[in-house]
């Protein structure tokens, strides 16, 4: 696995479970990431995103009172290109094909299946840095082209496929 100096990376965690926030903070701190912020509500996110301008967003998908789709709309439709193109990883335990499809259609840069390990999280960050996505815009989608390719290729994505792809660099 490629090694990176991640100390300058600014990470925003979107998560309503304080225990999961602790876990992410431990992982990210071990990766030498110094600047980690956290929000647990949609209004906090709206305020934080403009001021903080993170380099990476890690967002849970189903939270109390809001979800990842709302987060992705605020990111991908933001008029500020610094925010619009913020790398955003969804972290979810959903395994239903329809749900996975909707997560990919939201324009996320990656989807990490829970349970998430430190190795998995580092691997995904490194993979993104090694192979940043090409973005495309269409009538009903804005985000990484590889999401569209994956949706077209598989039509129905199941959890097993998602796990198999964990170690593969997407095309």
């Amino acid at each position: 696995m490629q090694n990176y100096n991640l100390s300058a990376l600014k990470v925003l965690i979107v998560e309503d479970s304080s225990f999961m926030v602790q876990l992410y903070r431990i992982m990210l701190s071990a990766f030498q990431i110094k600047t980690i912020e956290h929000v647990g509500t949609l209004s906090e996110f709206t305020q934080k995103i403009e001021k903080f301008q993170p380099d990476l967003i890690l967002t849970d998908w189903e939270m109390e009172g809001f979800d990842g789709e709302e987060i992705m709309r605020l990111v991908r439709h933001n008029p500020n290109p610094r925010i619009t193109f913020t790398p955003t990883f969804a972290i979810s335990s959903f395994t239903e094909a329809k749900k996975i499809e909707s997560i990919l259609k939201s324009g996320v840069d990656d989807l990490i299946a829970k349970p998430v390990s430190a190795a998995d999280l580092y691997n995904r960050i490194a993979r993104f840095l090694l192979s940043p996505p090409k973005y495309v815009r269409g009538p009903d989608y804005f985000g990484p082209e590889r999401n569209l390719k994956r949706l077209e290729r598989e039509k129905v994505i199941d959890a097993a496929t998602m796990e198999e792809e964990n170690d593969v660099v997407w095309l």
Binding site: L9, D55, P132, K134, Y135, V136, G138, E145
Partner: peptide, 11 residues
């Protein structure tokens, strides 16, 4: 139906 969006990431 999709166009590539030119953007150079900062990371």
């Amino acid at each position: 139906g999709y166009e590539t969006v030119e953007y150079r990431g900062w990371l």
